[in-house]
């Protein structure tokens, strides 16, 4: 292009209006349907000493939660393994059932059956070999624009064969178990992209922890069904939910007959650290 062909170029100016694309959040009131009460079963078994707990309850209305949703009493609950062990659970508290003699062992498959009001709900779960935490350490974190806190590192070695799934819980001595040290209730890992590697996971704990707190880290080796359950549970818990996520749905349960909840066998290794 020849420069003489440009007739003239007008001076260009522009006004920049300061615009901040700020999102705004507000609590709104929404009319929700009242769903018919539905059974919820939460059962675990681990390689730790029992008793193992199975809780049975019913759902309630969304905007009328209470600390205590209707428990399901007088259910018949039996835990068995693939080695012939069998344990009938005893109701200790309303809706809470405890095992009596059973002891979880890695490598076995456990089954749970719950009979309530003429319906049978069952599930089974495999208890994987325990993966040990090699070490943990904490680094006090300061820095520009990042709030003070600790980076807690957890090291463990993923076994050579693929198909390992983990759940990592981080608890603090000064918080109730439901409160997390970093805003996340639990972390899930799969070895899909890291099979056989030395794993280093970082937990960025913020203002909820103080020097002197004892942090307990629990590494649970879980089976694929449990991983699927917890990852689809995480998908619908709003703190992790993106506004463009696909339609939410009830987590992928391993329970039969339409029950909500899960039955999970896991092998757990625990390590503690005192923050300095």
């Amino acid at each position: 292009m020849k420069i003489e062909n440009i007739k003239y170029l007008l001076p260009t100016t522009f006004i920049l209006l300061g615009i901040a694309l700020n999102s705004c959040q507000e609590v709104v009131s929404i009319d929700l349907n009242k769903a018919d009460p539905h059974i919820v079963i939460e059962g675990i078994i681990s390689d730790q000493p029992g008793p193992y707990v199975v809780k049975v309850s019913m759902t309630g209305n969304y905007f009328e939660p209470s600390l205590y949703f209707p428990p399901v009493t007088d259910a018949q609950i039996v835990l068995t393994d693939d080695n012939g062990q069998r344990d009938t659970l005893k109701e200790s508290d309303q809706g809470t059932y405890l095992s009596t003699t059973l002891r979880g062992i890695s490598g076995r498959t456990y089954s749970m059956s719950v009979v309530s009001k003429g319906k049978i709900y069952s599930a089974s779960s495999f208890m994987p070999a325990k993966v040990l935490i090699d070490s943990i350490y904490a680094v006090a974190r300061t820095g520009f624009r990042s709030e003070p806190g600790y980076d807690i590192y957890v090291l463990f070695k993923d076994p050579p064969e693929p198909g390992n799934y983990y759940r990592l819980n981080a608890k603090s001595s000064t918080l109730i178990p439901a409160d997390s040290i970093d805003g996340r209730r639990y972390r899930l890992y799969t070895d899909k992209l890291t099979n056989g590697n030395e794993m280093t996971e970082r937990i960025r704990a913020g203002g909820q922890v103080q020097p002197g707190d004892t942090i307990t880290l629990e590494l649970l080796s879980i089976d694929k069904a449990s991983y699927d359950y917890f990852s689809t549970l995480r998908d619908i818990l709003s703190s992790d939910r993106s506004p463009t996520s696909l339609s939410p749905a009830n987590p992928n349960t391993n329970l039969s007959n339409g029950s909500l909840g899960y039955f999970s066998a896991f092998a757990m290794d625990t390590k503690k650290i005192v923050l300095k």
């Binding site: 929700l32 539905h38 919820v40 939460e42 309850s57 949703f69 619908i236 339609s247 749905a249």
Partner: peptide
Amino acid sequence: VTFPSGNYWLDGRLVPYYTERN
């Protein structure tokens, strides 16, 4: 959209219960 029609306690948290898609 899919909104919850109920609620339940699980793993120490309140979990929304969905009954139908959209």
